[in-house]
């Protein structure tokens, strides 16, 4: 078990550059109400198990959640803010795409 970064130790002799950081994880919590996990923030941890524990301690102290997901941040592919226009503007003024004109049958359950 020597392949993961060690815990940041006391003052490294050569200054901050010698310090190895734990990888970053994104945390998703499913709250008391609703079915979806929502992004709540991120944290550093050496592995998934420890990330889960840390997420519990950092993000659910006030009974915010009933379920936690942790995902390595490097696994997330994000859209580029500079391409915001072409990505999202075409959806403007197309209200007919909103399903607000339909009654949802009870059988469908939670949506």
């Amino acid at each position: 078990m020597s392949d993961h970064a060690s815990q940041p130790g006391p003052e490294a002799p050569e200054g901050r550059t010698a310090r190895r950081e734990w990888p970053l994880w994104e945390v998703f919590i499913r709250g008391q109400h609703g079915m979806s996990h929502r992004h709540v923030g991120s944290l550093h941890a050496p592995d998934a198990e420890r990330a889960m524990r840390a997420a519990r301690d950092v993000y659910t102290r006030r009974h915010e959640g009933v379920s936690i997901w942790v995902v390595p941040s490097v696994q997330i592919t994000a859209s580029a803010p500079s391409e915001k226009g072409p990505m999202f503007d075409p959806a403007d003024s197309k209200t007919y795409r909103h399903p607000t004109f339909f009654d949802i049958p009870d059988d469908v359950g939670a949506m």
Binding site: P8, G9, W22, L43, H44, A45, R53, A54, D57, V58
Partner: peptide, 12 residues
């Protein structure tokens, strides 16, 4: 504590 996450967990 040596890391923010451990700091919070320890305080909890």
């Amino acid at each position: 504590a040596p890391a923010l996450e451990e700091d919070i967990a320890t305080a909890n």
